[in-house]
């Protein structure tokens, strides 16, 4: 049986699609500036690339604010749990039509592989692109006006970092576009990112879902019992905070109620 869960909130979806649009545009204009092909004309490509870059930076600022104000940033903390099962799934299980090792929920919408990849994007690739991009833009030749205090003697290292990051991003996009099709159905992931709702299949009744929620909360807590026996108090505090955070708990409840409502509707 299937049910619909509201996974991606309005801003999240807006952020995702704006980011997608901007990255596509930045990649397309960027590689023209890199000399890979001609399309807009060099001056236009540079002007558009710079404009899109500013828009992207503003978007990032809003996204960071959103991630911290909603606590969603915790979704991206990498975990070792289920990595093996996910690797197994994508390498073998997927061909046998096996189900995903975990289920998506509001509290844990990313699988452990996604967590690692998106974490790297957020912490490594995007910052490298933004920083090298700003240096690129405000680079003003040796010892002249502009960023004199930084005093960069050559554009080369900046440009090389920026190019390498661009290649990494394009590789990510290829992979990302393909993995969209690996949801419950081929289009379910795409639909979820468009509407916010994802259709889920359940083998059993409500109880199962509750169990899964519990499971995913465990993932959130980053508590791998085998490896993190000597975990510091700090982390424990955070987990306590998570569990006690008033904003999340009611959400969970409300989701559960909507789900049960959905279930009822489905039954009817």
């Amino acid at each position: 049986m299937t049910t619909k869960i509201y996974i991606y909130k309005a801003f999240e979806r807006f952020w995702h699609w704006m980011q997608a649009l901007l990255i596509f545009f930045l990649v397309f204009t960027g590689f023209e500036i890199h000399g890979s092909y001609e399309f807009f004309g060099y001056l236009n490509a540079v002007t558009y690339h710079n404009a899109a870059a500013y828009a992207f930076i503003i978007l990032i600022i809003f996204a960071i604010f959103w991630h911290f104000s909603t606590g969603e940033w915790r979704q991206y903390i990498p975990t070792k749990k289920y990595i093996k099962s996910y690797l197994n799934y994508y390498l073998f299980g997927i061909f046998k039509d096996e189900p995903h090792p975990t289920k998506k929920t509001v509290l844990s919408k990313l699988n452990p592989l996604q967590k690692i990849v998106y974490f790297c994007l957020k912490i490594l690739v995007i910052p490298v692109m933004v920083v090298s991009g700003l240096l690129y833009m405000y680079y003003r030749y040796p010892q002249d006006t502009g960023i004199e205090s930084i005093n960069i003697n050559s554009l080369e290292p900046i440009a090389l970092f920026h190019t390498a990051g661009a290649f990494a991003l394009v590789a990510f996009i290829i992979m990302h576009l393909y993995l969209i099709t690996t949801g419950t159905t081929i289009t379910s992931n795409l639909k979820a990112m468009l509407t916010g709702y994802e259709e889920m299949e359940y083998d059993e009744e409500k109880n199962v879902q509750n169990e899964e929620t519990a499971e995913t909360i465990e993932i959130l807590e980053i508590k791998d019992k085998d490896t993190q026996k000597n975990e510091t108090e700090k982390d424990e505090k955070i987990t306590v905070e998570i569990n006690n955070k008033p904003e999340i708990v009611p959400q969970k409840e409300s989701e559960n109620t909507t789900n049960s409502e959905n279930n009822k509707n489905n039954k009817l």
Binding site: H34, G35, L155, T163, A164, A166, F167, I174, M175
Partner: peptide, 28 residues
């Protein structure tokens, strides 16, 4: 004696980058 965008590139990054894209695409 200097780097200008559009004219210059590192052949190492160019090669690794393109290989990465080809391999990713092939894998997919």
């Amino acid at each position: 004696d200097f780097y200008i965008p559009g004219r210059d590139y590192s052949s190492f990054i160019e090669f690794s980058g393109k290989s990465l894209l080809v391999l990713t695409f092939a894998g997919v």
